[in-house]
Every structure is written in C-alpha cells, then in structure tokens.
Design a protein around this nucleic acid. Sequence first.
DNA 1: CGGGCCTTTGACTGGTTTCAACTTCTGTGG
DNA 2: CCACAGAAGTTGAAACCAGTCAAAGGCCCG
Lengths: 189, 189
Amino acid sequence: MVQALLNHVNRFVSLNTDEQHLLLDHLSVRHVNKKEHILVAGAICTANYFVLNGCFRMYFIKESGQEQIVQFGLNNWWISDLTSLESGKPSGFYIQAIEDANVAVLTKQNQELLFSSMPKAERYFRLVMQKAYAASLMRLQYLFDLSAEERYHHFNTAYPEFVQRVPQYMLASYLGFTPEVLSKIRAKK
Amino acid sequence: MVQALLNHVNRFVSLNTDEQHLLLDHLSVRHVNKKEHILVAGAICTANYFVLNGCFRMYFIKESGQEQIVQFGLNNWWISDLTSLESGKPSGFYIQAIEDANVAVLTKQNQELLFSSMPKAERYFRLVMQKAYAASLMRLQYLFDLSAEERYHHFNTAYPEFVQRVPQYMLASYLGFTPEVLSKIRAKK
DNA sequence: CGGGCCTTTGACTGGTTTCAACTTCTGTGG
DNA sequence: CCACAGAAGTTGAAACCAGTCAAAGGCCCG
C-alpha cells in the first residue's frame, strides 16, 4: 500500500532500495474510518499525512458557524495543518475522512530525522510544498476571476469523477458558495 | 544590501562564512524602477526574486480586463511565478515594482547549482515554500470568512504602515473588491 | 500650470445568501 | 429486510452585499 508513496517520491527524486527502506522506517500506516477526524481544531497537529487511498476534507468553522472546506485530500496528496505543525500551537482546522481511508503518517519528529539522514527527502518536500503553494494560488485565481457558476463548471470538467464522489454540500463549500446555489446551477441543464 | 538576504536565510538555517559566500556567488542584485515589470504575462519566468527593499505587486488580468492582485512582495519576501519557473511554460502573471526597488536574483539554473552544492539551501527553500503556502491558505480563510469591510479592517490593523504605502485601488484589488467599495468603507468613519 | 490618474459619491443592478418548506436519499435498528 | 429518522438536496421568495456605471473633485507629476 505504501508503494503509492514510493511512486510519488520517485516522481520527484530517485531513491535506491536502501533509501526507500530508510523512508519507510520513518512512516507508519493508519486506517481511518469514514467521518473520523485525524485533526480537530484546538489540537496540535503532530504529523504530515499522505493519502494512500480514500478521501479527506480539511475545513474550519466560520464565524457564522458554518463549515468552510479549505481543501480536499485525495490519493497522492499530503495533508496537514503546517502552521500548527511548525509552530506547535493549536490548529484552527479539522481534517476528516470523507470515505474509509488509509494514510501514511510522518510525524514531525520523524520528518526531522529523515531530513537529517537523507537530504533528498528535503528536496522532495520542497517540491511538494512548492506545488501545493502554486495550487493554492491557482485556487485564488479562480475565486477572483470566475462566478459561482463558472467555478462549478470549471471544476466539473476538470475533475468529473471526483464530483460524483463527494456530497454536493461539500463541493459547494469548497467552491465558495452555498448548497442552494449549487442545486440551482445543476437545475439549469 | 544583500545582507538582508543573509539575515533571512540565517533565520531558518545557519550558514558559516564559506556558505554565505557560496550563496552570494549564485546571486546578482538588480535595481528595479517604479512601475517596471520583472515579469509579464506570456513570458517565461526564469528566476526567483528576493525583495531587498521596495515593494512589488504580482497580478493577472481577469477575463473582465481588470487587474487582480494576487500578492504583494515586500522586504524579505521571495516573489516569482513558480508554476512558470518550474514548468518552463509562459506565465499568466505580471510582477511589477510599486516603488523603486532592489532584488536579489536567483535564476533557476543557479538555484539548481546551489541546491546540489549546498543541501542547506534546499532546506531553506523548503521552509520558505512552506511558509508561503501556509500564508496563502490563511488568505483563503479570510476571503471565505470575512466581508469586504471586515477584510479591510483586519488588514488595516495588521499592517497599518503598509496601507499608507500603496494606492487604495491596489489594496482593494488585493482584498478582493473594487476601489469604490474601499472608498465607501473609509467614508463610514 | 495642465492633464491624467486616483478617489469619492450616488443611483441602479445583479449575483448570492438566507430562510423556510418540501422532497428524496441513506443508513441504522428493530 | 423493512421502517423510520435524520441528512442531503431542491425550490421559491425576500433581503443584501458588492459590482457597475457615471460624474465630479482632488492630487500628483511632468
């Protein structure tokens, strides 16, 4: 199962067999049930999670009391609250499994150990962070440039299989509008 | 002048004198006039820029034809279009000096050389990317959670000196609304 | 000193939210 | 395996925040 992670790492840096073992020695695999949280607001985030299979959502509670989804965590994505992880302060986010899932867990401590014994790991994570940052900017672009309806259609054509997979109200939240709006957009045709 | 960069690097990783020289060998300093662009849409982004002094804005042109500011680049921030830099494809962004400025230029090529000769540099950039990513998520949070007026007040109390420094229409763009809205918010009291 | 850019102000418009009622789906226990 | 309760999705009406447009005033820079 962790093979998915090795494949992902090898897309960015190439590891020999020893290095692969070294990496795996710093990880554990954890099963997460649907609706189970691996992080709740107020807790301190202690690890990075790599999604082996299943699907997660990361969200926070708005002042209005509504949940706002910040991002989804799918296969081959790392998910975590880096702010809390780095600072050691309580997180403002929740991370919850939308489906039964398996994650590779890399604790902060193990991550540091890994970095000092294998500089390639540092490179890998630099590239992952860079990609995540670029994706986040892209998301901002869509929010600024497109209307609710355009955002939905864009997302729907970019990730048609994913749209089937999550409840509509979560998709609406992620796209930045209400479930009612999504329902009306869909009714249009 | 590049001392600012050395200080910044030393906040994340500690460099000895040799390493500092090695780093500087891979950089050049460039003066940028107010209103000058260091990147325009359609061009390929070839370098990372570290702002030594002055101020930049990174923006794109919306479908409506309006400029949308994605981020500001102030002292001690790296600014670049990582997507274009990484992929070698044309950028969709503009990066322009708002004030006369000086930047340290790290070309993609030099960055790779630096990484291979100094693993600490990789660590430094991982941390910088991580911080930038976290900041971008924070920005998303504010956009989702706060009204236009709340966003302005929040920004105004967080960075009062900066608000004085940039034209209102740029601030409005960054915060995600029109100059008229900002004007009306300010008129309220 | 003049021209153009920035800011202000007001009226109007419209996309999105909110609220509420109703229907459909889903999963859990009897 | 069915029944029922709660969750999710739909629909329509009313309210509102923010955008657009237009015109006027202020200010900076050449």
